[in-house]
Design a binder for these strands. Sequence first.
DNA 1: ATCATGCGGGTCAAATTTAGGCCCATGATT
DNA 2: AATCATGGGCCTAAATTTGACCCGCATGAT
Lengths: 351, 351
Amino acid sequence: MEQVAELLKKIAPEIVREVENRYTILQNIYFYQPIGRRALAGIISWSERPLRSEIKKLEEQGLVEIEQKGMKVSVEGEDTINRLEDFIFYLRGLSPVARNIEEKFGCRHVIIVPGDSDKDETIKKQLGREAARNLLSFLKNGDIVAVTGGTTMAQVPHSMPPASGFNEVVVVPGRGGLGERVELQSNSIAAELAQKLGAQYRLLYVPDNLGSEAMESIVNEPGIKEVIATIRQASILLHGIGGAEEMARRRGMAEQQIEEILKKGAVAEAFGYYFNSEGSIVHATTSVGLSVMDLKNIRTVIAIAGGASKAPAIQAFLRYHRPTVLITDEGAARRLLYIEGGKRNDEQKDS
Amino acid sequence: MEQVAELLKKIAPEIVREVENRYTILQNIYFYQPIGRRALAGIISWSERPLRSEIKKLEEQGLVEIEQKGMKVSVEGEDTINRLEDFIFYLRGLSPVARNIEEKFGCRHVIIVPGDSDKDETIKKQLGREAARNLLSFLKNGDIVAVTGGTTMAQVPHSMPPASGFNEVVVVPGRGGLGERVELQSNSIAAELAQKLGAQYRLLYVPDNLGSEAMESIVNEPGIKEVIATIRQASILLHGIGGAEEMARRRGMAEQQIEEILKKGAVAEAFGYYFNSEGSIVHATTSVGLSVMDLKNIRTVIAIAGGASKAPAIQAFLRYHRPTVLITDEGAARRLLYIEGGKRNDEQKDS
DNA sequence: ATCATGCGGGTCAAATTTAGGCCCATGATT
DNA sequence: AATCATGGGCCTAAATTTGACCCGCATGAT
């Protein structure tokens, strides 16, 4: 497949753009369906007329269905999206990018989704889908799965196909809830995921940043204690890598303190710990549940993060710990290599 | 690769034409190089201006080099042609066509080159190249290779890469020379091929259609006798399938007799025998060298024929004998299935 | 039930791209 | 020395694409 992609780039480079365009259109219709022409044009920043022409072709191919209430992707189109994703991976030359990251960070497996979450909302769904796929491939009955929160992680259960045979699996949040929107909290995600998997779940409602006395008393509650014990035994971790500032703000950290830890060079956060770009811990907050120290005891760690802006956080996290799988997107991957090597700079602006 | 082709046809069907066009252009430049714009436009029946635009793109991709004396294909372009051929095979859906022929005629291996020899001279070169490849893959030292004549067969030695280690191989013509242009005679082809392979060769200069007394006396000449004995021991046969009328005419058969055998339904000829479309012998001429009766004793038979017009001859031959490999082109293959099954009619006119 | 919104589709002129056709200087071949 | 085919330039016409509308109509909210 990679060779075919290279061949096409040589013989007809224009079609590469064409195929990518149609992929983006199809993907966005799928994400927002049913959606109208004008709305879609706004989302992907096209003008209406050309978009219309492209969609007409897609409709003629039976990939898109047009109704009064809007356009949607046909079942054939859905299948085409999936197959296209793999192909575009090679078309954009992401294969060498993935290998590069694997080498530089000693990662076993790097998965890159074409696109950039910062620019295209639908990419997060792709990341979630990849995460779901990977989780399924690693999951065995009896496993304890810990998940973290965030917008990307929230996509994972949505993309998880209903499964069965995982009655003995337990899904837990990695830590206590954050003060964020409920649907992005690890608790919600854990519950949703467990439901999709037909698995059990335990939730942990403990606010972060408690005083040590209050923390101690809550942690010693029998129910809470049991959940925490379960979390500590997690064998699979689905971890959404978070940026330092973003996470600090989400947790309601004082503006002054945020400034302080940023001055210390914090770029990434994980389980209440803040890391600088070297992967060293520069700040720690009180927290219950998993700790970064537990990472090395977890059999399978699936790290997820997308968007060029997340690259520094990814870099920091990878330097601290080598996950089993890194799932990211093109924007983050290219930026990551850029800030890491400085050498292989092949960023591309428009997509 | 086949799946990628199907995918591309779905998402961007226009690219099929585009890729095929550029392939044809590249192939024809390669065949006639160095050649000018206008001449090339005449050959492939394009108007000059669009051809110019396409070639400009090919040049920008570094596939074509333009000099004062004409255009030629770069080394990279040459490589691209080869890789494109395989890809276009799937792009045109020739994979199922080949399988179909294999099934219907019980052929072990069918190779189809995209294009139609009737319309495009360069296709014969492709056929020759495939024949050369196949011959090499079957050839072992000690083999006796018999070849027949014709325009397609004449391309085989030209496309044969210089080889060595075949000192013990002997190349012979399948039969005595025909009264045709010397470079298309089996004798010439056998000699050229032997030279390319670094092999030995024996030639046989005996006119066809001799009276029986004359024939007998010539055949008993010691030198001739030895060559004929060698031919009879051939282990590999490269056979260009011939149409009945064409071959009869090439041999200088009387116009009246030609009409007669055609009335008997003759559509194909091989080694002096004429077959109807059922594969039955309807006429036989005196001839020295191989006979159709010897076919079954030959280990490897590579049959070659291209062009939609050859389809009836191919059909007749395949019904008489199942060659090890059939090498043909798209035009012949599709027509063959059309006249055979009547069902799977997916002919296409323009290419 | 009514209304407003967003939908697909139609239309038409402007802008851009592509095609046609010709000439020209040049370098190779005869 | 002369002829020929070559690539490149150029300009006009044609075709296509783009931009900017408007319209009737379902649908969902009021």
